[in-house]
Amino acid sequence: MADIDLNLLTALDALLAEGSVAKAAERLRLSESAMSRTLARLREATGDPLLVRAGRTMVPTPHALALREQVRELAQGARAVLQPAGAGWDLRKLDRTFTLRANDGFIESFAPALVARAAEEAPGVCLRFAPKPDKDVRPLREGLIDLDIGVLGASGPEVRIQALYRDHFVAAVRVGHALLDEPELGTARHAAGHAAGYAARYAACAHVVTSRRGRRAGPVDEALAARGLVRRVAVVVPSFRAALSIAAATDLVALVPSSFFPPDRVQGALRALPLPVPTAPITVSQMWHPRQDKDPGHQWLRALVFELCKATAST
């Protein structure tokens, strides 16, 4: 096998397709003499004349006819293997399932637009959203998921990261809740978290918080403590959606990202209020393994997620 010149495969494909040394030479941008020498090598390699004279033209031998389709497929396959990744790639013919790991807030806010665009641009693609029980990087490393979307946790040095948008926490309460009577709601002073009276009333409420690890305290508690205030956490749940469900049916105040609420800050029986204390913004990112860097399908998916998140976050 070390003595086989695979360039002969391309030459044989051209000769059998054109049925002419001159036309095959033109197709491969070679001289006629060079193509004639290549035909001689092919005859020696196959033990068959392949093309023979018939008047002023050349015709394939029975052996050449038997090889023609196989040679065409082999030549096309070789070109596909050796060309740059993505060359000649057709998105509309892509038949593939992508697995995205994200929390319920991202899915509710961005999945509808993402699914619609994907169906329009790549109808053969299936998007599978997987639950996000933790921030373990192992599923990315093992190829169990294609994209991990969320707030950056502990990740390996090889993991690629791209920031999608910034979010912040808000308080969510049911319609009719006493906190909605706050007189300074909507003002710059209130939104900045400097209304001492509102902070005291907020801390006096019972709260439902979200933590996959069952933690009750967080940055909001630290900010309240700096003002000498302590809030009572009555319920701890593993998901923001569960926190919102409880807040909608009780007087408990839920702490959730603002992306759960549309621009008018209303969601069914719930209303979103600014927090009375400042908290650090949240950066939501998409993460992937470097093995997917040059994959054209994965590049398309990453670009689509980035575009939709930027567009939604800016509205």
Score class of each variant (00 low, 15 high):
147 L>T: 02
29 R>L: 05
108 E>Y: 10
266 V>M: 14
99 T>K: 14
92 R>Q: 12
115 V>R: 12
305 V>W: 10
186 G>K: 06
25 A>T: 01
119 A>S: 14
138 R>S: 10
46 T>N: 03
284 V>A: 11
265 R>I: 01
165 Y>T: 09
36 S>A: 15
219 P>V: 04
65 L>Q: 14
230 V>H: 14
143 G>I: 08
111 A>L: 14
189 R>Y: 09
91 L>I: 06
279 T>D: 07
51 L>G: 08
314 S>K: 13
112 P>N: 03
21 V>A: 02
218 G>Q: 09
213 R>A: 15
291 R>Q: 06
84 P>T: 05
206 A>T: 02
297 G>W: 08
290 P>A: 10
311 A>K: 12
153 G>P: 02
118 A>T: 15
196 A>Y: 01
168 H>Y: 15
43 R>A: 01
156 G>D: 12
195 A>R: 00
303 A>V: 01
201 R>V: 05
194 H>M: 00
144 L>D: 10
252 L>M: 07
28 L>K: 01
307 E>K: 12
207 H>Q: 05
156 G>A: 14
88 G>S: 03
15 L>S: 06
54 A>P: 02
162 Q>D: 13
55 G>M: 11
120 E>I: 04
114 L>E: 09
34 A>H: 13
164 L>E: 03
150 G>K: 07
21 V>W: 02
243 A>M: 03
237 V>P: 04
15 L>F: 05
77 G>W: 10
173 V>G: 11
40 A>V: 05
105 G>D: 08
24 A>N: 11
187 T>G: 06
307 E>S: 13
123 P>T: 07
4 I>H: 11
199 A>W: 04
293 D>P: 02
217 A>E: 15
85 A>T: 01
183 P>V: 08
250 T>G: 05
52 V>K: 06
265 R>W: 11
179 L>I: 05
211 S>F: 04
224 L>I: 05
15 L>I: 01
61 T>D: 09
32 E>V: 07
120 E>G: 05
126 C>W: 11
86 G>W: 03
219 P>H: 10
115 V>P: 00
155 S>G: 00
93 K>W: 11
260 F>L: 15
243 A>K: 00
138 R>M: 03
296 P>I: 06
11 A>C: 09
290 P>Q: 12
278 P>M: 05
296 P>M: 03
192 A>W: 07
49 P>M: 02
94 L>T: 04
225 A>K: 04
95 D>N: 12
33 S>A: 13
258 S>M: 12
98 F>N: 00
62 P>M: 13
60 P>F: 12
295 D>G: 00
310 K>T: 09
76 Q>W: 10
204 A>H: 11
133 P>K: 02
61 T>A: 12
195 A>G: 02
296 P>R: 04
146 D>S: 06
116 A>C: 06
287 M>L: 15
72 R>N: 08
268 G>Q: 07
